[in-house]
């Protein structure tokens, strides 16, 4: 049964070679930033493209939220604790949006380096807790971070 064995060998070789190729391609792709998600540090450093719809994620800096009393326009600072980026947005913010909360904003960077968001999403994490505990934890650790 040599032809049969030969055929099996070919298939096995193809699978090994193909798998190696897949792994190589995926590893290469992972090295590139393909989902256009940038941290505030990357944006400040100028790594993010201008005029492209990108996403920025981070924590809303405490005390940075400014609401325009006459419109739905808001501005706030987003931070990854190292660098801050100013975000401007017009529209209704989600209920979970508050200072110290993690958010993801989608939009474009303008020429002044201000992020003009067309969408702000509150990212709520997998941590759930009763209010009393949250209260006590907040008192114990007064940081910008709401996450315990």
């Amino acid at each position: 049964m040599t032809p049969k064995r030969k055929q099996r060998m070919t298939i096995a070789l193809l699978i090994v070679f193909g798998t190696a190729l897949i792994v190589g391609l995926v590893m290469y792709a992972l090295k590139q930033n393909i989902n256009l998600f940038y941290s505030t540090t990357q944006i400040v450093k100028g790594e993010a493209p201008k005029d492209a719809r990108i996403r920025v994620g981070g924590m809303v800096l405490k005390g940075s939220l400014q609401r325009d009393p006459n419109s739905l326009h808001v501005s706030f600072l987003v931070t990854d604790t190292a660098e801050n980026v100013k975000v401007e947005y017009t529209g209704i913010l989600p209920d979970l949006f508050r200072e110290g909360q993690g958010i993801i904003a989608q939009g474009k960077l303008d020429t002044q380096g201000v992020f003009q968001a067309d969408e702000v999403l509150a990212k709520h994490d997998e941590n759930y807790m009763p209010p009393e505990i949250a209260e006590s934890m907040k008192n114990a650790k007064p940081t910008t971070e709401a996450k315990p």
Binding site: L96, H124, Y128, M129, P130, P131, E132, I133, A134, E135, A146
Partner: peptide
């Protein structure tokens, strides 16, 4: 079960 500190009772749908 206690309510969540952020979401209140709405988290119960979990």
């Amino acid at each position: 079960a206690p309510p969540d500190y952020q979401q209140g009772n709405s988290y119960r749908i979990i």
